[in-house]
Design a binder for these strands. Structure first.
Lengths: 205, 205
DNA sequence: TTCTGTGAACCGCTTCACAGCG
DNA sequence: CGCTGTGAAGCGGTTCACAGAA
């Protein structure tokens, strides 16, 4: 089910649908249509139906999609029907903001460890989590079998951190540093690039 | 020059090239090739050449591209060869982290005002910036002619903030709230969606 | 010779349009 | 009758391959 040659761009829209479905659900709706789901996701209805059809027929012809059922199926497909333990590397302002933001845990991404290489920070707490030395990072991540990490260290340190994470067995990295990370093919990296997004928009101003 | 029907996807790669060029420049390089620029940006050499050719011939056949010259031209195209004043709405953890992060100013995005609707926060300082009541937001933004804003308020408040920003004359919004914002066609919105990025990656694990 | 700039071929995603099921 | 699921058509971005400039 996981990989039947589904276009990556289709997979990237599933989280959007999921977000919109939760939004509709919070409004008390139980049924939706490709029309409604599309409008609220800014995606055409035909696109929505095509995307979902890659994974099977989730709708009922004539009536539409059951919101709870469709949400559950998409969560299964994306493997977010479970808890993911996450390691956070970098305890600067951004690291703090992320560690204290409840939104990740609400979606099943539980930050379990915070690492930093600054001796002055080791042992200090962020909420209930102690800041741990990066010296122990590889060992802990491997031991705990953690597969997902976030990087919020300065750019110059990001590649070296990524290398260590790969060595520790991390399989998915969310990178907040404004650099392109080099990792083996079987490791997923997504970069959060607000500056590039701003630069993209100014073109049109 | 700004809009000669350049595909949006091409524009979205220019900031990546710019980032890589700065990286190459910091390494002391002065000349590069579509090959090298592409490898470090994880984009094919043909794609790099094709993208740049939309805007004119910036390279020298046989030798390659002058890094300083190409950087300057891309900055012109993206209109990041100037200072952009930015309004930040929301002074929670994330707002604080953004306001204190020097990276935006380094790229020409200067955060000039921070707004929040929490009376307890009004008047407190973030660095050198006072937190200002959202009651004054529309007036100040309009008066100062600010065109770029960032939203870091909770999801439930984001659409209402966006509406006010549009009313105030904002033309580009960088949205950190996990919701799809509805704005008029002539306003640009980009959403920072780390959670969707994580959900995208877990599909492949 | 090297590497850019670019028409043309290719490929893959999007949109269309309708059959078919509830 | 309404809305999904889907083959087929359409379209746009990517890759190819080479002419041509330095």
């Amino acid at each position: 089910m996981t990989d039947k040659n589904i276009p990556d761009i289709v997979v990237s829209r599933l989280p959007i649908y999921l977000q919109t479905l939760q939004h509709l659900s919070r409004q008390g709706k139980t049924i939706t249509s490709s029309q409604e789901l599309g409008e609220q996701s800014f995606i055409t209805a035909a696109q929505v139906r095509k995307d979902l059809s890659f994974f099977g027929g989730f709708g009922k012809q004539g009536s539409g999609y059951d919101i709870n059922y469709l949400s559950a199926r998409i969560r299964q497909i994306l493997k977010v029907d479970r808890i993911w333990n996450v390691a956070l590397v970098g305890s600067g302002d951004l690291g703090h903001a992320i560690a204290r933001y409840p939104g990740f845990a609400e979606r099943g991404f539980h930050i379990r460890y915070v690492f930093d290489n600054d001796p002055a920070k080791i042992g200090k707490m962020i909420g209930t989590l102690p800041i741990i030395s990066t010296d122990k990072m590889v060992e802990i991540i491997r031991q705990e079998g953690i597969m997902v990490a976030m990087i919020t260290v300065p750019s110059r340190a990001a590649q070296s951190v990524a290398d260590q994470l790969v060595q520790a067995g991390i399989k998915a990295i969310l990178n907040y540093a404004p650099v392109a990370l080099n990792v083996p093919e079987n490791i997923r990296v997504e970069t959060v690039s607000p500056i590039l997004q701003l630069e993209h928009m100014t073109y049109y101003l």
